[in-house]
Design a protein around this nucleic acid. Structure first.
Lengths: 203, 203
DNA sequence: GTCTATAACGAGATAGAC
DNA sequence: GTCTATCTCGTTATAGAC
């Protein structure tokens, strides 16, 4: 199979990412750390080792189109992290607590810089950039669905699983921000423990 | 008594705010809606009905100094809202649920634009602007203390009140973001209900 | 304290050679 | 597909008259 960039992905080893992929990844990481307004297209091109011409070649819609794509990338990235945390233990209450700890470790490893990949951009673009806000809304729904699946599979009632999934995501989001601000894993550890207790009360 | 701007605040009626105060208020509202990088000094001056010269007269440190002051203003504003919500009912579990609903109403009234006054700026300046990050950390601690006081006064153990206060703030923060993204009060309403149940389990 | 003008720089975006 | 040069506009910040 051939990709549009002519790269061969039939080999088993991960091929070096093409220009388009490098741009999306660099943008995602920069949006995570600096937000939308704080990130310039020239900086993106530099960090992705691409030229400005390539940016507009792959993303004619400019910064907005590139950012929307980067949000979708961050969606997948955070979803993988959630699945990893939730899948590490069978008991749902324990699994959520483990997910909180997992997020805390990632945060500490990055010196508290790499929190949720999309929150900063989400807040800056509310009511201002529909394409990006749409991608953000879809990411939140995706994550909520992953948590809901875990809770449902563990035997919780459909309605409880639905509502709890919302609060699990929101609490982890808020605790991640608090952890970044206070430079401590404690908010996430405590949040995990409280969510665990809350979920157990529905089992 | 005379203020440094020569305004007389001995009268009972609220005097029209001076230039400095107008600048801080306008900055606070703009940071809330657009974040730090998305807000320009010229826009601030325009909305505050002041000139650029006045900005640098009152805030020689420029945008950073003005933003740090605006964060402290947002701190007080959100603290007032918290006290209002928590004070509306005696039972602590009920009071937290009421606070969630109060935040939801404010959000809807502003067409989902006016969430937490400092979150966007907080995320953009983590690890980059120490003065602002410091003001953010103090705000979070202030809010946590307010919730902790309500829980302690209601008879909860000191340790439980301390940890629960953290999760209450973080969950409301996360739910507020979700409410803005989904343009619905539901995440806040659900969060309030879950926090209520969690707190009741410690009573 | 307030105002205008402007300096110095970086932003997003485009054109066109290769 | 990639690269460089450039256009236009907006940014933070400063200078100096009033």
């Amino acid at each position: 199979m051939k990709t549009t960039t002519g790269q061969d992905d039939s080999t088993a080893t991960a091929a070096a990412p093409g220009t388009r992929e490098r741009l999306v990844r660099a943008t995602s990481r920069l949006l995570q750390r600096q937000g939308y307004e704080g990130t310039g297209i020239k900086q993106i091109a530099r960090e992705a080792e691409a030229t400005l011409g390539s940016v507009y070649h792959f993303f004619p819609g400019g910064k907005q189109e590139l950012a929307a794509e980067a949000i979708r990338h961050g969606d997948q990235e955070f979803a993988d992290l959630l699945r990893q945390g939730l899948g590490s233990v069978q008991d749902p209450a324990e699994a959520v607590a483990a997910t909180g700890r997992l997020l805390g470790h990632h945060l500490r490893e990055s010196d508290w810089l790499d929190g949720c990949p999309i929150t900063a951009t989400a807040l800056e673009t509310i009511g201002r950039t529909p394409d990006i806000q749409q991608a953000v809304a879809e990411a939140f729904e995706n994550w909520r669905g992953i948590v809901q699946g875990k809770l449902r599979d563990s035997g919780l009632a459909e309605q409880d699983a639905h509502e709890l999934a919302w609060t699990v995501i929101n609490t982890l989001e808020g605790a991640e921000l608090a952890a970044q601000v206070s430079r401590s894993e404690q908010p996430l550890e405590v949040a995990g423990r409280h969510l665990s207790r809350l979920i157990a009360s529905y089992c």
